[in-house]
């Protein structure tokens, strides 16, 4: 799975599902980087074929609306949208 890894402080497992074209997704990445948090991200719009479908199903499990950005924390909690306070409160 082509997750991109960003180094930083480990505050738990943070996975960001994003679109490469989306302004709020960009702001989310900027905030995670300002907070110097370690995380993985994937741009769903850049995937194709089976790989794309597989990731879409993954995102829907966490956020049935399939909207972006969707952040999954420690495989148990979800932050949908550019929720500044929520992201600053990680791992929470």
């Amino acid at each position: 799975m082509p997750m991109q890894h960003v180094d930083g402080k480990n505050e738990g497992k943070i996975v960001l599902y994003a679109l490469s074209t989306c302004g709020w997704c960009r702001k989310t990445r900027m905030l995670l980087e300002d907070l110097n948090l370690e995380y993985d991200y994937i741009y769903v719009d850049l995937l194709e074929g089976d790989e794309k479908n597989e990731i879409i199903e993954q995102v829907k499990k966490w956020n049935s609306q399939l909207s972006f950005p969707t952040i999954v924390i420690n495989d148990e909690k979800t932050i949908v949208g550019f929720d500044e306070e929520g992201i600053k409160g990680l791992p929470g």
Partner: peptide
Amino acid sequence: FTKSLLKSIILNDKRYGYESCPCRL
């Protein structure tokens, strides 16, 4: 910010043949 969204709209038009919203899949 606006120009980066417009860039994405043009990009989506090239990718899909229609000016799809940059913030939706």
